[in-house]
Design a protein around this nucleic acid. Structure first.
Lengths: 132, 132
DNA sequence: TTAATATATGCTCAATAATGCATATATTTA
DNA sequence: TAAATATATGCATTATTGAGCATATATTAA
């Protein structure tokens, strides 16, 4: 019972829903610094939100050097229904800005790996502009 | 966005999940005093939980005299997916006792209406025993 | 109009969670 | 080994929520 309640608690937060939305919409694994730019939120906010989602096993992660790539834990049978539900539930335009920003940020990947890290917004926008 | 968060907050509570489970499992409308006996919780706890679920439009209600019958708001299109999800999500044995108690309590209805009100447990058990 | 009954709600205290900052950890590179 | 970088976490403050009690409201019946 308590375990089920924890799932809903984890979903009762704007930052965590925005993060989940990006995993769902991009269908990709994402690292902390990419999510920072997608949501325009500080590192510790993203990191703490990820821990909560990991604790309910909705996310899993892989380390690659100092980078940590999180992704939806879609293999876990008990998650299938929930993820399906979330996909429909999050079908709304309120996340559009996040989705645009993460798309731009992901365009900077090389071989589908993050190579940028944490950089000032100004510098980020320049990189993106150059890329286009 | 905030509205969506409120939905998950409303589901992040044991009493409210137990109540929802009874609506889902019985498929019936239920009044406050019946839920009191199903969950063995005080009147104000049930009543407050119902207000929260009503506020997110997951429940609706009908008054009949001093009795108030709540039920799942299944007509509302945006609830269909959520209720479907909850049906599967609450598929667990942890609610068995609640379900037994509400079944007993509902056996005391006449013309499918509550006629018992709020009564001491001892008296309730006697009524149920006599009925059987 | 009074009493009884079903339900709702205001209030206080305790528990829980979010926020923001500072710092810790772990890995890579020089 | 030291510096730099990506990520995680401890802590203090604030905000939110739950529990329990008392009481209010609304309807019915005497």
């Amino acid at each position: 019972m308590q375990q089920r309640i924890e799932i809903f608690k984890a979903l009762s937060d704007e930052t965590r829903l925005r993060i989940l939305n990006l995993f769902i919409k991009t269908g990709k694994n994402l690292c902390v610094c990419e999510l920072m730019d997608g949501l325009k939120l500080p590192q510790y906010t993203i990191s703490k939100a990820l821990q909560v989602l990991k604790n309910i096993n909705l996310l899993k992660y892989e380390k690659e050097g100092t980078w940590v790539y999180y992704k939806l834990n879609e293999d876990l049978p008990e998650n299938k229904l929930l993820i399906k539900f979330l996909k429909a539930f999050l079908q709304t335009e309120v996340f559009e800005e996040d989705e645009k920003r993460i798309a731009d940020r992901l365009s900077l990947r090389e071989n589908d790996k993050c190579v940028v890290g944490i950089i000032p917004e100004k510098e980020l926008l320049k990189l993106i502009k150059d890329k286009k």
